[in-house]
């Protein structure tokens, strides 16, 4: 996992309005695709999870990775240990949970799945690909 870049992220509006900021924060309802023209100057995109049950951030993350974003992608907010494996698969590489995760539980959760059924934003090989070499 990447070391978090220590820099306050600006809102999407502020970012699009100005700016030479190199980090931005996306709220759930905001369109990740608005950032696509600016990806090469961004080093941190923080995606907020107001509630763990709101899964829009998973799509936002994947969209950014599919568009070639290489910088840090941080999940912030109601980030729970049982979500982080899915988050990582969608391209998140750092986590800023509101309530700290038990490091042992987190490590276990991230290691648990030895196989995956489908391609996503990580580099894991789906089972169907292994089956057919």
């Amino acid at each position: 996992m990447a070391e978090p870049v220590e820099e306050p992220a600006v809102t999407l509006d502020a970012f699009l309005d100005q700016s030479n900021a190199t980090s931005v924060r996306l709220e759930e309802g905001e369109d990740a695709r608005a950032l696509i023209p600016h990806l090469d100057r961004l080093s941190l995109i923080e995606i907020g999870f107001g509630s763990f049950g709101d899964g829009r951030g998973y799509s936002a993350a994947r969209i950014l990775r599919e568009a070639g974003y290489q910088g840090e992608l941080r999940a912030e907010g109601d980030v729970l240990v049982d979500q982080i494996a899915f988050m990582r698969r969608c391209g998140f590489d750092s986590f800023a949970p509101e309530r700290p995760l038990d490091p042992e539980d987190a490590a276990r959760a991230l290691d648990r799945w030895s196989e995956v059924y489908q391609p996503a934003a990580d580099d894991r090989t789906p089972i169907w690909s292994k089956r057919h070499g």
């Binding site: 763990f52 049950g53 709101d54 899964g55 998973y58 799509s59 994947r62 979500q83 494996a85 899915f86 988050m87 698969r89 969608c90 799945w113 995956v116 059924y117 489908q118 996503a120």
Partner: peptide, 10 residues
């Protein structure tokens, strides 16, 4: 495909 889909579990 849909089992443990990382994007579509919430």
């Amino acid at each position: 495909w849909s089992s443990f889909h990382p994007e579509f579990s919430f």
